[in-house]
Design a protein around this nucleic acid. Structure first.
Lengths: 161, 161
DNA sequence: GTGTATGCAAATTCTTTGCATGGAA
DNA sequence: TTCCATGCAAAGAATTTGCATACAC
C-alpha cells in the first residue's frame, strides 16, 4: 500500500464498478495522485491539457464528480480563501483537518485522534451513519501573524472574497 | 446574554466600527438572528422581501459579506448537499459541527469538547492563530438508513449534485 | 452636508446539460 | 458491436461589480 499503488487501487475500484478507464480518466487519476494535493478543477484541467491538449474541461468536472460520488476523492473548500472553487484530494486512510492561512494561502494538514473520535461520537449520539467528513480552519500562520497587525484589517466594506 | 439580546449585540458591535445601521441591515440582522438557522442568501432575501419588498438581493450579499468579515456570522456549506450556495448562522459562543443527511437534507448540530480541543492543538502544533473553524459531516440519518439500501446508490454516471 | 449604502443592470465565476460522435470492453 | 464517455457549445446557478441615487450620522 505505498503511495504509488494508490492510483492503481482507484483504477481497480473503478473497473470493479464497470467504469471505463479511458485515456482521459487515467491522466486525471495520475495527476490527482501524484501532484501535490488540493487541486481545483481548473488547475487539474490545465495540468491535464499538457498531457492531452484535446482533453476538455467538462471531462474534468465529470470525472471529479464520478470520483467524489464513489468516495474515492474528497472535496475541500479550504475556507473559500481564494474563491468558491472546490479542491480535491484522493481519500486518505487517515482523516485530517485542513488549516488555511487567510493571508498567504498556505495549507497545512492536521492529523489527530479527535477527528475519528468525533465521527464515532456523532454516529452513536445522533444515529447517523457518516459517509464523509470535513474539518477546515482559517487563520494566520506564524509568518503572517506579525504582518497582519500592519495590514489594518478593520471591517472596511471592500475586501477579499 | 439571552438569545434575543444577540441581535442587539451585533448592532452594537457594528456601530462601534462605524458601520451604518440602515433599515435593510436591521431587517437582515433580525432575520439571521430570529429565524431557524442555516439560511442561504436566497432564502434570506425572500424573507427580507416580505418585510421590505424593495430590498435588493445584492444588499443581502453585501451584508452577509460584511458580517462574515467582521466575524459576526459563520459561513457553512452543509456539504453542498443542495447546491453550491452558502449558509449562514450568527456566531455562537460554542463551536459545533454540522451533520447533514445526504438523503433528506436534515441538519443536526453536534456540540463537543473535541472541537475546541482540536483548535487549541492546531494553534500550538502548527503555530497558527485560528480565526474561524468549520466541521461538517455528511451521512445518513436514522430514518434514511433503512431506505438507502433500497435506493440502489451504485456509482452510476448521472445523479445528484 | 458628507460619504457610505443601496438599487438596478450587467458582468463574472464556477459548474452543468444536450446532443452528436468516439472509443473501451 | 454495444453503450458508456467525450467534446463542443450553450445554458445555468451563485455571486460580484459599476455607477447614479438615497439616506444614516
Amino acid at each position: 500500500m505505498v503511495p504509488a499503488a494508490s492510483a492503481t487501487g482507484i483504477q481497480h475500484s473503478l473497473r470493479m464498478r464497470g467504469v471505463r478507464l479511458t485515456r482521459q480518466r487515467l491522466i486525471l487519476l495520475e495527476l490527482l495522485d501524484l501532484t501535490g494535493r488540493h487541486l481545483d478543477a481548473e488547475s487539474l484541467y490545465q495540468l491535464a491539457k499538457e498531457k492531452d491538449p484535446k482533453l476538455n474541461r467538462v471531462t474534468v468536472y465529470r470525472t471529479l464528480k464520478l470520483l467524489k460520488q464513489g468516495g474515492l476523492i474528497d472535496e475541500l473548500d479550504l475556507m473559500h480563501h481564494a474563491g468558491d472553487q472546490h479542491y480535491y484530494e484522493t481519500r486518505q486512510k487517515q482523516e485530517h483537518a485542513h488549516i488555511v492561512c487567510l493571508r498567504c494561502g498556505k495549507v497545512e494538514e492536521f492529523f489527530g485522534e479527535a477527528l475519528q473520535g468525533m465521527k464515532h461520537q456523532v454516529e452513536t449520539a445522533l444515529g447517523f451513519r457518516i459517509v464523509t467528513a470535513r474539518t477546515e480552519m482559517g487563520g494566520y500562520c506564524a509568518d503572517c501573524q506579525s504582518q497582519t497587525a500592519t495590514d489594518a484589517v478593520a471591517i472596511s466594506p471592500q475586501a477579499e472574497r
